[in-house]
């Protein structure tokens, strides 16, 4: 069982990969060949290497919409979105897979299973990822008391791994594009694409989740 490690591969110049997966319906749709390259742009200096960017998530529709939004948003860097339903990733195309710069776990708070899959998947990440290259995205957070409870456990999980939690409104266009732009912000930093001297670790100290203090329980 291969551990996914961020630094085991040399980054490709000017590309990025996003991996989106769907764990509720089928387990086997991993690594759809969804290399969504944007034809860029020669003026981009070759100094940029491409961030690879993975979403592990459970709703195909949201996944692909989000992937599209991310790719369309980013004009300077080739962002490459890949989909997966869970970790570990299959061994077969391990060779051709680009370096993954950010792993995003998408948790649908309506489904208990969604959180369980994410919890299991975390074991297959190398510890290097937890220095700012993992983030959680939750959907359906405004969906009743049960979702609130699950959100709390997601936050606890994220806090224990020093990761940020991003809430997404996946039903509206605006919500998706906002989620995409947030992920891109993190991605660019974690892939070293940010023009400023900021590291993923540093950004994660600013954005990481802290265990919420419950003042009003309901």
């Amino acid at each position: 069982m291969a551990l996914l490690a961020p630094y085991s591969k040399i980054p490709e110049p000017n590309t990025a990969t996003v991996l989106v997966s769907s764990q509720l319906r089928c387990v086997c749709v991993v690594l759809t060949p969804k290399h969504l390259f944007i034809a860029t742009v020669n003026y981009q200096l070759a100094k940029f290497s491409g961030p690879s960017f993975r979403l592990v998530e459970n709703e195909e529709k949201f996944q692909s919409k989000l992937a599209d939004a991310i790719v369309k948003r980013e004009k300077d860097v080739n962002v490459n979105v890949r989909l997966a339903c869970r970790l570990p990733l299959p061994v077969e195309n391990g060779e051709t897979r680009p370096r993954v710069d950010l792993v995003v776990f998408i948790v649908n708070l309506l489904f208990e299973r969604s959180l369980q899959v994410v919890e299991n998947s975390l074991n297959h990440l190398s510890s290097d990822y937890f220095l700012g290259k993992v983030c959680f995205m939750v959907t359906d957070a405004r969906c009743g008391a049960l979702a609130q409870e699950r959100l709390l456990s997601v936050k606890k999980l994220a806090a224990s791994h020093r990761c940020p939690v991003i809430c997404a409104e996946h039903q509206t266009e605006d919500g998706i594009s906002m989620a995409a732009s947030r992920l891109l912000t993190i991605l660019k930093v974690s892939a070293g694409q940010s023009p400023l001297a900021t590291t993923a670790l540093y950004l994660s100290t600013l954005t990481r989740c802290t265990v919420p203090f419950e003042l009003y329980e309901d």
Binding site: V165, R182, T185, I186, L215
Partner: peptide
């Protein structure tokens, strides 16, 4: 203390991941 927990904590995450 409430201000920190109830307002600042959520805001800070939104702030640093936004445009």
């Amino acid at each position: 203390s409430y201000l920190r927990v109830l307002v600042f904590e959520p805001l800070i995450q939104l702030y640093f991941t936004s445009n």
